[in-house]
């Protein structure tokens, strides 16, 4: 899938020329021509790390979208297994989970979960992405692989409502336990939120 997101409803008018095709249709799998060209150019020059990693671990595929770090994709079911291999394989030795977060791809009806691995021995960084459906956001936890995952996953649960299976202590981290909704979801609304509707103002 591409991460070609359609522009927000709020600002189609405020976008000056650079936006070539403001597509209002939510389901638009075809990437913009520019992006396609880039991808065609990019594909031969995949970073070496991505090639190596994909060759070693069959479950991993090169990341489809644009990213400035070497990136791979994995299916949710294979996540824990491939991340464990990435940590334990001495060629990669990703001993550190630098960051874990989610992106709400509301147009695709998906959450993209991003694991940013860092290797202290090879000093390389790898982005592992996986996508789960928005209406049933369950994913196995990687707490067993890195200790910090417990809390990074709690943050993602708190703000996105992604449910981590087998997580030892899955609860809110910033918000209160009885908070309704998950604030970083694109469709989140609550009574205190200030929504600035540009159209209405005009």
């Amino acid at each position: 899938m591409t991460d070609e997101a359609s522009p927000d409803n709020k600002q189609p008018e405020s976008t000056p020329p650079p936006a070539p095709t403001p597509k209002p249709a939510p389901a638009s799998p075809a990437p913009a021509p520019q992006a396609q060209e880039e991808q065609v150019e990019k594909e031969p020059e995949l970073p070496k790390l991505v090639v190596d990693v994909c060759a070693t671990i069959g479950e991993l595929k090169p990341y489809a979208s644009e990213s400035d770090t070497p990136a791979v994709e994995v299916a949710p079911a294979d996540l824990v297994k491939s991340l464990t291999t990435l940590r334990d394989n001495p060629d990669f030795a990703f001993s550190m989970l630098m960051d874990h977060t989610a992106i709400d791809r509301i147009d695709d009806g998906q959450f993209e979960l991003v694991y940013r691995l860092y290797s202290i021995s090879t000093l390389s960084m790898l982005l592992v992405s996986t996508k789960i459906p928005r209406d049933n956001p369950v994913i196995p936890t990687v707490c067993e692989v890195w200790d910090i995952a417990e809390w990074q996953e709690r943050e993602v649960y708190d703000l996105f409502g992604v449910l981590y299976d087998n997580h030892p202590d899955l609860r809110r981290v910033f918000l209160e336990d009885d908070w309704k909704g998950f604030p970083l979801r694109k469709d989140y609304e609550d009574d205190f939120m200030l929504t600035l509707d540009v159209d209405k103002l005009r």
Partner: peptide
């Protein structure tokens, strides 16, 4: 959903 959510 089978995932158990805990509270403080």
């Amino acid at each position: 959903m089978a995932v158990k959510v805990s509270t403080l």
